[in-house]
Design a protein around this nucleic acid. Structure first.
Lengths: 337, 337
DNA sequence: TCCTAGAATTGTAGCGCTACAATAAAATGT
DNA sequence: ACATTTTATTGTAGCGCTACAATTCTAGGA
């Protein structure tokens, strides 16, 4: 409690102070900030000048309490360990800013942290909540739905909390698998991710299997990693695949980071990429363009996912229901395959 | 305005509702959440059970308005393009959570965006504001100081907004330069960063120069990059340094990402690292441990910087003044030098 | 059984802003 | 010049919670 006391502002500046200094009523100050078109230009200039001189910052909490609405969107991210969600957040921020909203972000690396983050953001009465597909605490869905706050789950499909926004993950997996087959690859390893990241990962393996089956190829070379955000997993799966089948000629990785790790491991083993084994990544991270060989990858339009999320959150009620909003993706063939 | 209307909660649940359902007064509900030790166990269990069943989430905005204090710290990050600030945010979150606070983050890639983010966070009346050293909008310092909100600037020194939290950047630069010299390097290139990132970068070059002077070596091989978060800069500086002096035998880079980019470029040119040219990075990113050769780097204790920031923000008034809080760093010699 | 002290619960006013309504001032029409 | 309409400004009550105060309840002692 004493901690809370210490954060009390030493000098509280309110609309009353600005009003007194500008010779108008507090309501006029409020209207200058909230409904500027209702105030005469001369009056408004005077008020805003005084406000700036005093360093007045409107209290958003009081504003949202009185107005019953907020201009802030809350986003929960599972990781910022690498650039997985960089473009997504760019899309969120730009789309929100275009509508006069701000985005506040909380990082949550476990389902329990995600639940706590959601509670904080709901407590701040954000205008909308943007989640990312992944394992959720059991109570999250209920909590969010009972709150009545608009919610989207990016990278999620039909089973999303709120509405899903994603791209055709299965379609991308199919296309990438077909690309490897078209390159002449016949013993293709698939790297799955344990614990689920929701549709980010779960739709990929079935699609891979369908394409392998359709091409009359075996689909048995599947390895699972615990997390998809570290280079180390890439090194490990090269070890594991080669122990399983020395004839393996391609690996399809869950992210560009894992793929880069796999390529580094191949380099360390003197294994030629793509001559001896092709490596494909996912996500079109920066690193994929810089390593040698440059990395073949799936490029989701992550910024479009972010924009789509905002348009759902701030759109009308009907937009918050229905089938997942799907955005585009590209297969980017590069040197590694 | 119609946008704001649509974000109105369809069903508002307040302490009144919980109180009615639990057969107590709203003040008792408030005390259960705020001062649980003031409520009898039997009463508290009943109230919390009802609250959970109803899906009640306390309105933090109303709470902070009434209490005059917040349990939320605001952090502004300049980038999440790579893992620069990952460990820093871990330190922030952990230290805040230990004291019952949450951290909300805003990403701001330009000084104007940083100013807007600071305004939003001040408007939310966060308990404290954690900035990161870099070019700031001119009005930022005044705005933050007038607000009376506790503020720290991580990676900043004596000229910090609020108090600085950092490590001895000059000391690290000296130590890394001495390491290269001790390895027998004599033509050492230094990569500076344009536009400043505050003390994150500005203390490095003078320290480099002092060490080179003290060793009787030339300090003329200095290149400047616009940003330190992309691999491409690393490739470019290898080009540029070799055009300047083919005898160059080491490069000291501003981040591990730039250093990795430089190593990739040396690989592409068939230039041996460290046989032909040593490469040192900065920041101990994941990638430094994965590439071949593994990367020599400076490891700041970024999580300690985050923890230090929180202890200042939530500490007493005296802790918010004074010399920058300095944390440790390590030089991590690896294969690249 | 009555009194006192401490614990538990509840009451009151207000935090800073704003939706909606009321009033005042300015502009337009006869 | 006066009446009416439109524009600009201001007044009121309340958003959901809580600091502080007041009241009620419970337990222990005389």
């Amino acid at each position: 409690m004493s901690d809370a006391t210490d954060s009390r502002q030493p000098r509280k500046l309110t609309m009353q102070d600005v009003a007194r200094a500008a010779g108008v009523s507090p309501m006029t100050v409020s209207n200058c900030f909230r409904y500027p078109e209702r105030v005469q230009e001369k009056t408004k200039s005077q008020v805003m000048k005084v406000a700036a001189e005093l360093g007045y910052v409107p209290n958003l909490s009081a504003g949202l309490l009185a107005a019953g609405s907020s201009r802030v969107i809350g986003a929960v991210l599972p990781s910022m360990r690498n650039s997985s969600f960089y473009r997504y957040t760019v899309g969120l921020r730009e789309a929100a800013a275009e509508r006069g909203y701000a985005v506040i972000t909380m990082i949550a690396e476990t389902p329990a942290e995600e639940l706590a983050a959601a509670q904080t953001l709901l407590g701040l009465r954000v205008a909308g909540l943007a989640l990312i597909a992944g394992p959720h605490a059991r109570e999250l869905k209920r909590l969010v739905e009972l709150s009545g706050t608009p919610v989207v789950e990016a990278w999620a499909g039909e089973d999303a909390i709120g509405r899903g926004v994603s791209y055709d993950v299965g379609g991308a997996s199919s296309a990438l698998t077909r690309h490897l087959i078209a390159q002449g690859r016949r013993r293709i390893g698939f790297v799955d991710v344990a614990g689920g990241g929701g549709m980010r990962y779960s739709m990929r393996l079935p699609a891979f299997r369908r394409e392998m089956f359709a091409a009359g190829l075996a689909d048995d070379l599947v390895m699972t990693v615990r997390a998809a955000d570290g280079f180390g997993a890439g090194a490990q799966i090269i070890d594991d695949f080669l122990a399983r089948d020395r004839r393996i000629d391609a690996v399809l990785c869950p992210t560009d980071v894992v793929a880069a790790g796999a390529i580094f491991e191949c380099n360390r083993r003197g294994l030629s990429v793509p001559g001896g084994i092709a490596v494909a990544g996912w996500g079109d991270y920066d690193i994929g363009r810089q390593i040698t060989p440059t990395l073949t990858t799936v490029a989701p339009f992550s910024d479009a996912i972010g924009r789509g999320a905002v348009s759902i959150l701030l759109g009308d009620e009907a937009q918050r229901r229905g089938a997942p909003l799907l955005t585009a993706f590209n297969i980017l063939p590069r040197e590694s395959t």
